[in-house]
């Protein structure tokens, strides 16, 4: 069965690019438009990987990660941050909230696939 990836980003084009990249490699992709939507969709469908942006309306990426880590089914699910933010302080905050990795935009589809493959084992 195809692994499910939840992509959370307020930019429609980024969601589209992530979806097209991952779908072409055989993953099932669920899209969410902000942190809150991401949380609801994560609760509704057990994702094998969450890929989230940081700056979003309603709920940002760090808050989403913290909330997800509080849910039993997402305690050890890989969660990757995909954001324009590249400062060490933000990365440290991401690591502290339980992120598995940090990807700075723009992403190279090939490299994204490699990372996704790696964290999904």
């Amino acid at each position: 069965m195809a692994k499910v990836v939840l992509t959370v980003d307020d930019s429609a084009s980024i969601r589209q690019m992530v979806a097209f990249t991952l779908k072409s490699a055989g993953y099932e992709v669920v899209e969410a438009v902000d942190g809150e939507d991401g949380l609801n969709k994560a609760r509704g469908k057990n994702a094998d990987l969450v890929l989230t942006d940081q700056n979003m309306p309603k709920m940002d990426g760090l808050s989403l990660i913290k909330t997800l880590r509080g849910l039993p089914q997402y305690r050890s699910t890989p969660i990757l941050m995909l954001t324009t933010e590249s400062s060490d302080a933000m990365k440290a905050a991401g690591k502290a909230s339980g992120a598995t990795g940090w990807l700075v935009k723009p992403f190279d589809p090939q490299k994204l696939l490699e990372v996704v493959k790696k964290v999904l084992g």
Partner: peptide, 10 residues
């Protein structure tokens, strides 16, 4: 620039 960004796995 538009070079692809860094990737860091914790």
């Amino acid at each position: 620039s538009l070079g692809s960004g860094d990737i860091e796995l914790f």
